[in-house]
Design a protein around this nucleic acid. Structure first.
Lengths: 140, 140
DNA sequence: CTTGTTGCAAACGCTTTGCATATCA
DNA sequence: TGATATGCAAAGCGTTTGCAACAAG
C-alpha cells in the first residue's frame, strides 16, 4: 500500500494541515481541522496516509488513551518528547546513552531485543498562563 | 461505582486469575483464561473490576496497541516495567532520582505538572529459548 | 491507459453502559 | 431487606477494510 507516493490533493492537504497544527494531533483532529477550513478529505484517507507516513519515519507518533497522535518529524535521530497535555505542543529532547543504558540493564535481567518508550507530559508555560487549547492556524 | 468492596464470587475469581497469570494481561485474557477453567464471569464485570482495582492502585496498568494490560501490584513505590513482548512476564525496576530529573529538566523548558511514562520491552530468556506464549496456570 | 488513491460505508476490536436480575451483608 | 454487583446485549469510539470510482503519471 502506498508504494509509489503520488502527489495527490489529499496528501498535500494532510501535510499542510500537519504543518499548521504543529503539535501532536490525531487523525480525527486533522480531519476536523481540514473540514473547518472547508477542505474535504475522507477520514479513511487521512488514517491511511498518517499511518504510511509514520511507517516511513516522516511522522513521529505518540500513543495516549488508546489514540494515536502524529506530528511532522523535526529531528531525525532517536529522541523523546515532552508533550503539553493541554495543547499538544511538544519539545524534543534526547538522553545521551539512554538507549545503551536500558539495553544493558535489561540484558543483565535476561532480556534481549530491548526497546523502550519514554514520554514526558506536562503543561507548557503558555497553557499555564491562560490559553486553553490549540492555537496555530490562521490564513489560507 | 464499587464503593463498598463486597466480596463476590467474580471478584475472588478475577484476583485469583491475576495471581495465576502473573504477567500483564488484558481483560479479555483474564476472561478467556477463566472460561478455560470453566469459571463463568461476565466480561463486563471483569472490565469493571480491573478498572476499579487499578483506580485503587491495587493493579499496575500498561498500555500497548490500544489495549490495557493489568497486573497485580508487587511493589508499592513508583517503578517501571521491563515487559516480555512474548509472554508478558515482567520485571520491575526503579531509577533513583529519575522522577526529579525529569521534573527538573521539564521545568527548565517551561513545563509544569510533569509526569512521565517509561516502559522497556524485550524478550525474556525463557521465551528466547523456546517457549512461545504464556505459561503459568496448572491445578485447580 | 494503467496503476496507485480516494471516499464511502460497513466491519472491527476493545471497552463501556443501560437495565433487569441476582447477591452480599 | 436493601444497597451493591453482575450479566447480557447493545452502544461507543477510534481505527481499518472492501470496493467501485477516480486521477496522477
Amino acid at each position: 500500500m502506498f508504494a509509489s507516493r503520488r502527489v495527490t490533493r489529499p496528501r498535500v492537504l494532510i501535510v499542510e494541515q500537519l504543518n499548521r497544527l504543529d503539535a501532536f494531533s490525531t487523525a480525527q483532529t486533522v480531519y476536523t481541522s481540514l473540514c473547518a477550513r472547508g477542505k474535504k478529505v475522507g477520514i479513511a484517507t487521512i488514517y491511511r496516509n498518517l499511518q504510511a507516513m509514520a511507517g516511513r519515519q516522516e511522522l513521529d507518533t505518540l500513543h495516549m488513551d488508546g489514540e494515536t497522535f502524529y506530528r511532522l518529524c523535526k529531528d531525525r535521530h532517536h529522541h523523546h518528547h515532552l508533550v503539553c497535555r493541554k495543547c499538544g505542543r511538544t519539545v524534543e529532547f534526547e538522553i545521551p546513552g539512554f538507549e545503551e543504558w536500558t539495553r544493558e540493564g535489561a540484558r543483565s535481567l535476561g532480556f534481549s531485543e530491548v526497546s523502550h518508550s519514554l514520554e514526558l507530559f506536562g503543561v507548557c508555560k503558555r497553557c499555564r498562563l491562560g490559553a486553553t487549547s490549540n492555537d496555530s492556524d490562521a490564513s489560507d
